[in-house]
């Protein structure tokens, strides 16, 4: 079970209060993009054993979308951060780097 901290309403809740939204930081490739880009945007998702960036929604709470950085193998949640960003913020990467030496995005 994951314990997530909602960066919008400050609630520390457990997984069942939230709804998962899949991989975070996808770049959208819409009309006008190459077939390969479009295909990978639609169908290809990372499935790492280790650090993963995900989108979550505080479904039973404030209803906001946010991001979480967590480990898929240990279920450790490194950090959660707001959705208004295109890439993981530096402080989140620092936390992960500290806990997982040698890890690269």
């Amino acid at each position: 079970m994951l314990i997530l901290h909602c960066p919008y309403c400050g609630v520390k809740g457990e997984e069942t209060e939230f709804a998962p939204g899949g991989e975070a930081h996808l770049a959208r490739h819409g009309p006008g993009s190459t077939d390969d880009d479009f295909k990978s945007y639609l169908f290809s998702r990372k499935n790492p054993r280790g650090v993963h960036f995900e989108r979550w929604r505080h479904a039973s709470g404030c209803g906001k979308w946010f991001h979480a950085a967590r480990a898929t193998d240990t279920l450790e949640v490194y950090a959660t951060y707001k959705a208004q960003t295109l890439a993981p913020p530096k402080q989140v990467l620092d936390i992960i780097a500290k806990k997982r030496p040698g890890w690269n995005i």
Binding site: G13, T16, G61
Partner: peptide, 8 residues
């Protein structure tokens, strides 16, 4: 007392 929580 005074705290408010939205949940399920």
């Amino acid at each position: 007392p005074g705290m408010f929580r939205r949940t399920r």
